[in-house]
Design a protein around this nucleic acid. Structure first.
Length: 708
DNA sequence: GATGGATCAACTGT
DNA sequence: CACAGTTGATCCAT
């Protein structure tokens, strides 16, 4: 099938394609020409960034920006070094192009964005708040900006008629209220997203935008939940967060393009349409077809650049290499009445793409089963070509609809087909190669953990006992007898739950076990609480919710990965093992076998930007060292990476008036299935640097070169 | 022709 | 399930 990919193109007589024509391509309303990759295909790696070798502490050559996701906003040393290249130091002249939204940094001075309805709802998110927020960025973060007195030249009158209504006053944007949100914004250093990067991004920027968006959205959701009773039930943190970032220019790849988008890889996953928007993978916030205008010979015509297939119409995409896509329109949104689709907009663009044979990005939306069927997961399935199109009568309503047959460009990494394979493995309808053990936990976890090796003939890791939780020889401390909560039906946000109070007034997890904001310490419910075991404030007590497997990596021994997609903030697992004295770490190190040690006393990349400072307890309460050599759970197989996708969070539980600390792992960002799970092992303090270094093989751009 | 405001369509999301 | 709520395209007046 793979090799035959080209042959199967035979539906349309190919004929010689004049590629020079395809080169004369420009996006709608944009003065910067955009060129597709030459020859248009085989570009799994479209914009290889030059390899640059930099020490982690700098100095950095221009254009290289180190990315510390949780960098403290007041880490002035580093940012000062870094100012050379861009950001504040090199202001980009504000070219009033329509295609770039000029961030209204100084209130109404800048030209207004085109095409935006200036309704009351929009005013809420953008207008009045704008001046305040840009002040935060311009002068650095300060929590007590009460901007009412400063040069707010514009005042009220700008908002004419209906604006100024209830909304804006009744619900000021949460950023103003919440220090953590403010902190997130400040740490993001939005000034660094200049016009160039906004137009064309890279991996670093796309990752940063998605990260901040998700942190933002999670925190806003948490605030919404606490507010309770969800007025109108239609508070949309997903939209609000995106709006906030967009109006500040925190977006990328805004110029439309044919083919892959820098910073997004085939197989990447998303959980909101706005995420596709923010990184330029698919611009429309709702519509399924994105297109742009290109010039062929004198005339301009629209061609499709990306589509989202997520079940709204009667698409057929089961094959994984072929997609039958239905055109847009033909249904009245209000009453669901149907009529004929018209050959306009996206439909016309797809039709033109049949003849143009350009690559079209395909995003497949599937229902998010882990979220109880609410919401979707969007998988970037790479590039397709529209092979043919036709019109037919819809089953419902007997109206004419357009259909488009798309074929996946060969040679791309597996994406949607992988999801299908995974489903078959779950069902048992397909056998897996390289399975050594179907469940290495022997039933100790609620889900089996597969042991696989499809790279060599090693039969498994060294012997160990599988234990699902952490073993203490003695409690960390006796705590004062404290009352547990009385939440018989499980703890809920907004109520008077005493455990919520311990967490600074917020419930740390949402209903599907996603950590809503990082904290110094998360207080979970304990033995004195009345809530049931499935209480969301016991998220880390029930073992992994995602189906993980232990697998042999190519060059780093055994590793851990997940069959299920994991959301940013999603719970992965706890670190199980035996709590040991810090002084005993050396014993393990001496025989060169400290591979299975978790050491919370090491130094870690700062989490400051994401940590909730409302929290009372600000410093790590206790040194915690865990050995999983003799016994442990899946966490012992997690490898180190200098740009990890998993972060650990200290969790405390009280059992019979004794306090126990635990280490729980959460996804930093969305993790597609089968991507190795890694965390940062941290750095050994200088006075203990006698421990053996190991060469780091994580291969990330900002790799430190070694770890302990 | 350019500009900007108003309106519209759209496989959202709770 | 009803409905608030986005963005970008398009229409229209200037």
């Amino acid at each position: 099938m793979e090799q035959g990919g080209f042959g199967s193109d035979s539906g349309t007589p190919p004929g010689p394609i004049d590629k020079s024509k395809v080169l004369d391509v420009k996006p709608l309303r944009c003065l910067v020409p955009v060129f597709p990759t030459p020859n248009g295909m085989t570009s799994t790696n479209p914009q290889p960034s030059p390899f640059v070798c930099v020490p982690p502490s700098g100095p950095f050559p221009p254009g290289v920006s180190p990315f510390y996701p949780f960098l403290s906003p007041n880490d002035s040393g580093r940012s000062a070094e870094n100012q050379e290249g861009f950001g504040f130091g090199t202001p980009i002249s504000p070219v009033p192009l329509n295609s770039f939204r000029t961030p209204t940094a100084n209130g109404d001075a800048g030209p207004r964005r085109p095409g935006r309805p200036r309704s009351a709802a929009n005013g809420l998110a953008t207008d009045d708040d704008d001046s305040q927020h840009s002040d935060h960025f311009g002068s650095g973060y300060s929590n007590d900006v009460e901007d009412t007195s400063t040069g707010k030249k514009r005042g009220r009158p700008r908002k004419s008629r209906l604006s100024q209504s209830d909304n804006a006053a009744a619900h000021p944007l949460e950023v103003d209220m919440d220090p953590l949100l403010n902190q997130l914004l400040a740490s993001f250093k939005l000034a660094e997203v200049d016009q160039v990067k906004k137009a064309d991004g890279d991996k670093e920027l796309a990752g940063r935008i998605l990260l901040v968006y998700d942190l933002f959205r999670r925190r806003m959701t948490q605030i919404e939940e606490r507010r309770g009773e969800t007025p109108g039930a239609a508070r949309r943190p997903d939209l609000k967060g995106a709006n906030l970032l967009m109006t500040r220019g925190a977006r990328t790849n805004q110029t439309k393009r044919i083919g892959n988008v820098p910073g997004v890889e085939v197989g990447d996953i998303f959980f909101f349409r706005m995420e596709l928007c923010l990184v330029g993978l698919h611009a429309p916030s709702m519509a399924g077809i994105d297109y742009m205008s290109v010039r062929l010979t004198g005339d301009e015509e629209p061609i499709a650049v990306s589509i989202v297939s997520s079940g709204g119409y009667d698409d057929e995409g089961d094959d994984g290499e072929v997609l039958i896509y239905t055109g847009q329109g033909g249904v009245q949104r209000r009453d669901g009445q149907m009529f004929d689709q018209k050959l306009e907009r996206g439909n016309l663009a797809l039709e033109k793409s049949v003849h143009r044979r350009n690559e079209v990005r395909v995003i497949r939306g599937v229902v998010d089963v882990q979220n109880g069927g609410r919401g979707k997961v969007y998988i970037y399935d790479g590039l397709y070509r529209v092979q043919e199109s036709w019109a037919e009568k819809s089953k419902l309503g007997n109206c004419s609809i357009f259909r488009y047959k798309l074929l996946r460009v060969p040679g791309q990494p597996e994406a949607f087909t992988l999801w299908k394979s995974l489903q078959q493995w779950r069902d048992g309808t397909a056998t897996r190669v390289g399975v050594i053990l179907p469940d290495l936990t022997s039933g100790a976890e609620s889900q089996p953990v597969c042991l696989v090796n499809d790279v060599d003939d090693e039969k498994g890791p060294a012997y160990f006992t599988y234990i699902p939780s952490l073993k203490y020889s003695k409690p960390f401390m006796k705590s004062n007898p404290s009352m547990g909560c009385q939440c018989l039906g499980g703890c809920q946000p907004g109520g008077s739950c005493s455990c919520v109070q311990k967490n600074g007034g917020y419930l740390p997890f949402n209903s599907i076990g996603v950590l809503m904001s990082y904290k110094t310490l998360v207080h979970e419910c304990g033995s004195a609480c009345s809530c049931p075991p499935n209480c969301r404030n016991r998220t880390t007590q029930a073992g992994p919710k995602v189906r993980v497997e232990v697998f042999k990596t190519k060059n780093r021994g055994w590793g851990l990965r997940s069959w299920d997609p994991i959301r940013g903030g999603g719970f992965v697992c706890e670190y199980a093992g035996e709590v040991i004295d810090e002084s005993r770490v050396g014993e393990f190190g001496n025989d060169g076998d400290d591979d299975y040690i978790f050491d919370a006393t090491r130094m870690y990349e700062p989490l400051e930007a994401t940590r909730d400072y409302n929290d009372e307890s600000k410093k790590a309460p206790y040194p915690l060292v865990i050995s999983a050599k003799k016994g442990g759970n899946v966490a012992r197989f997690m490898n180190h990476s200098c740009s990890p996708n998993v972060y650990w969070q200290l969790v405390v539980r009280e059992i019979n008036n004794e306090t126990y600390y635990h280490v729980a792992f959460f996804a930093i960002r969305h993790i597609p299935p089968m991507q190795e799970l890694t965390f940062d092992y941290g750095m050994v303090p200088p006075d203990k640097a006698d421990r053996r270094r190991k060469k780091c093989l994580c291969g990330s751009l900002n790799c430190r070169g070694y770890f302990y």
